[in-house]
Every structure is written in structure tokens, then in C-alpha cells.
Simulated assay, not measured.
Amino acid sequence: MRILVAAASRHGSTAEIASHIATVLRGTLPSDAVVDVAAAAEVTDVTSYDALVLGSAVYMGRWLEEARSAAERITSNPPRSVWLFSSGPIGDPLKPTEAPAEVSDIVTSVNARDHRVFAGHLDRHRLGLAEKAMVMALRVADGDFRDWSEIDAWADQIASELRQPVAGKPSGT
């Protein structure tokens, strides 16, 4: 079994989530499973993979272009199993509360099994001017708002689904 975990990340936080998901999958799937990690911009042909986990940081309510393009490139021939995640809400309480624009369309186009939104990480020192203005408007303090136990639970759920036999195929093939 081959799985690709890919993400579009502007400042590294979403890439860390993708790497973490890959680590959980490697630790919970059978030892012969191969779990690769890549930047979303590198995702072109996924036909050699049985599953894809694709994520993106969310800025201004949208997935990054690299992730949207990756999803578009695989629309015609997605792997058997696809999961999507978004990273972005920050603060306490988390803001914004809306789902990222266009994600429901992406879920449909790649026939994703699930889409999750995970809280993000904010370090103003790493932001550009427009990003700083947006954060100021939201009135959010710096911090790492990612819930690693929630991410672990989702990765475990993915692993559990991947261990299930494929319809029409005997177990172990």
C-alpha cells in the first residue's frame, strides 16, 4: 500500500501537520505500507498511490493556490481514497469559523472521504504586511493553536479505513 501526504504551507505550520499525519500513518499501518510526504506543488501523477491526504493552509478564507492546483490535477484520476484537511483558524475562540471557500467543491471533485479543519499556528514575525493586517483585524494573539491529539485521532481514523479490505478484493491483496 502506498500513501501520499501532501500539503501547501506558507510558513511551515501546515507542512508540520502533514508530516505528523505521515508519521502516525507509518506507525499504525502494516510495515509494508509506504507513506511519502510532498509539497502540494509537487503533486502531479498520483496513479501509483492507493491513497492521498491533501491539505492546505487557509488564507483569506481560501486554500493556497498550490493545493487547489494539486486537487485540480488529480480530479480526472484520483487515488481510490482521498482525505483533505485545512489548517488556519487561530485564537481562542478560533477565528474564522467559516469553512474555507471552494473546499466543498474540491471534496466532490476528488471524491474525498473526509475533510477536516485544524487550528493553525500564528507567529506574527513570520507574516507579511497583508497577513499582519488580517490578524490585527481578527484581534488574535500569537500562539500554536494546533490540537495534536485531534490530528492524531484523525490520522488513526484514516489508518483504520485504509486497513479495511477493498470492496471486491479479498483481504491481503
Rank of each mutant, 00 (worst) to 15 (best):
M1N: 07
M1T: 13
I3E: 02
I3W: 12
V5M: 09
A6P: 02
A8S: 10
S9A: 11
R10K: 15
G12A: 10
S13M: 00
S13H: 07
T14P: 02
A18P: 02
T23E: 13
V24P: 03
V24D: 01
R26K: 14
R26T: 10
G27Y: 05
L29H: 07
V34G: 08
V34L: 12
D36T: 01
V37S: 09
V37G: 07
V43S: 11
V43L: 13
D45C: 10
D45N: 14
D45M: 08
S48Q: 14
Y49D: 04
Y49P: 05
D50V: 06
A51V: 04
A51K: 01
L52V: 05
L52N: 01
V53K: 02
L54I: 10
L54F: 05
V58L: 08
M60L: 13
M60T: 07
M60V: 13
G61E: 08
G61D: 10
W63H: 12
L64R: 07
L64G: 05
E65F: 06
E65Y: 05
A67G: 06
R68W: 08
S69Y: 04
S69F: 03
A70H: 05
A71M: 05
A71E: 07
A71C: 04
I74F: 12
T75H: 13
S76C: 06
N77G: 13
R80D: 11
W83L: 08
L84M: 11
S87R: 00
G91Q: 01
G91A: 05
D92M: 13
D92H: 14
P93V: 10
L94N: 00
K95C: 03
P96N: 10
T97E: 06
T97G: 04
V103F: 00
V103H: 00
S104V: 12
V107R: 08
T108P: 02
T108H: 14
S109C: 10
V110F: 07
N111F: 11
D114V: 00
R116Q: 13
F118G: 00
F118Q: 00
A119S: 09
D123N: 15
R126I: 03
G128Y: 07
G128R: 07
G128S: 11
A130Q: 12
E131T: 11
A133K: 14
M134D: 09
V135R: 08
M136C: 07
A137Y: 02
L138T: 03
L138G: 05
A141C: 03
A141K: 14
G143Y: 09
G143Q: 11
D144T: 01
F145M: 01
R146C: 00
D147H: 03
W148R: 03
S149I: 04
E150V: 10
D152I: 04
D152A: 04
A155C: 06
D156Y: 06
D156M: 12
A159D: 12
A159R: 08
E161Y: 07
R163H: 10
R163A: 14
V166A: 11
V166Y: 02
G168A: 09
K169H: 11
K169S: 12
P170D: 04
S171D: 06
T173S: 09
T173A: 06
